[in-house]
Amino acid sequence: MTEPVLRLEGLRKNFGGLVVTDDVSLDIKPGELHAIIGPNGAGKTTLINQISGLLDPTAGRIFLNGADVTALPANKRAELGLARSFQITSVLPRFSALENVALAVQARAGSSYRFIGRADGEAALNADAMAALKEVSLADRADVMAAHLSHGEKRALELAIALAMQPKLLLLDEPMAGTGHEEGERLVGVLQRLKGRFAMLLVEHDMNAVFALADRISVLTYGRILASGPPAEVRADPKVVTAYLGEELE
């Protein structure tokens, strides 16, 4: 049996009296694309924040490639191969698109405690960054300051930053959020191409995208996993249909 890239064991998160993650356990195997769907406020982002190390769970454990990372800070988890995108675009606004990505390349390309020599002139870093931008069709916007990119381009840049980290596990929090139909389609195409290269946890409201991409789907409501399984199974689950999919698929 291969070791799961990600394993959650009995994860729980309370905000005061509010239970936002309620006994969540799941495994993601290498190369698998696991989608998490659920209504607004179900606790999807909170779950991703705990996995990536931005929020401490109240209880439960998180394993990356078999190692318990529950107590590790976000940067250490990134070093172990975890990358993420944010629901609300999170880039470096006054850095060029290329430098946004080059900084992610730099994180795994030798020491960053170098004080002499221009970083933006390092050809090797720039070449890798450019390759990641090409993957998301953003190469021709490399020199544009991130703040000046369109919303869809910023979403693509988020993805490029994550790709440049050469992750083993990629967490995507609504990568299509707020993009137009065409840009959304393009992002689905990109994800389709990336599928299998590394494991992915995809949170997405666009059901067409989810059913096109996912190997497994978990349905989250009120912080609890209501159902989990292959797409066909989940789609047919009566509990899921009444709780969530009924309205979404209309």
């Binding site: 190390g53 990134a78 900084l103």
Partner: peptide, 21 residues
Amino acid sequence: SRFGRVFRGARENATRIATIG
């Protein structure tokens, strides 16, 4: 420098800098 780029990046968006490692 490389160091400075990380340092400047942390001002722009410390969470992003942490999540890239």
